[in-house]
């Protein structure tokens, strides 16, 4: 799986995107989509949605979508480069911050910054959902599966995999 794009592009892009991932890897899904589908044309909307689906059914950190995009574009070096570019600079910064922030744990300014950014995180999570819905829900039955999944996760305490499995079963049966 090589030749769709250059390793350097992959590493530089994910390095830059990592600084936008405030609140977690899910926050950059809109940006990943812009980069991979619109700007670099590394993949189609459908492939992006399929890689997202695979990342969702694989156990592990949400950053896996980044690994899979890296792999799709530039093979194993792309997978490793994308993952490290996304995690290492940000992780080092988080560690440095954890040493200073401890001193300001109850400072009003620190709390205000955290609350202010959390507000934006909520909107960005919903924006991610919106963009993924455009990419993956191709007919009304897909929208119905999404709606059942929303209602199910709000109304029950069932494990999230049940709702993913429900969609997978309908899809495998050829209904979607």
């Amino acid at each position: 799986m090589t030749g769709r794009g250059s390793l350097t592009d992959v590493v530089v892009q994910f390095f830059l995107i990592s600084f936008l991932a405030i609140g977690g890897a899910n926050a950059v899904i809109p940006e990943l989509h812009r980069m991979a589908v619109e700007n670099h044309r590394w993949m189609t909307d459908t492939t992006f949605a399929d890689l997202f689906a695979i990342a969702q059914v694989t156990p592990g950190p949400n950053v896996l979508l980044v690994t899979l995009i890296g792999w799709y574009v530039a093979g194993i070096p792309g997978a490793i480069g994308a993952t490290l570019a996304m995690c290492v600079p940000a992780g080092a910064m988080a560690f440095a911050m954890s040493r200073v922030s401890h001193r300001f744990r109850d400072a009003p300014l620190r709390i205000a910054i955290q609350r202010g950014l959390s507000a934006l995180t909520i909107g960005v999570v919903l924006a991610s959902a919106w963009i993924l819905m455009q990419a993956s829900d191709v007919n009304w039955l897909c929208y119905a599966v999404t709606a059942v999944s929303v209602a199910g996760s709000l109304a029950t305490r069932w494990h999230p995999l049940w709702w993913i499995g429900f969609g997978a079963a309908l899809g495998a049966a050829g209904l979607l």
Partner: peptide, 23 residues
């Protein structure tokens, strides 16, 4: 491909629900 479409559709719902819970 149908199964992946179903997984995406279900997972998108989890995202929407997560956003609603956070809000």
């Amino acid at each position: 491909s149908g199964m992946l479409r179903g997984i995406s559709a279900g997972a998108v719902g989890l995202f929407i629900a997560l956003g609603i819970k956070m809000a």
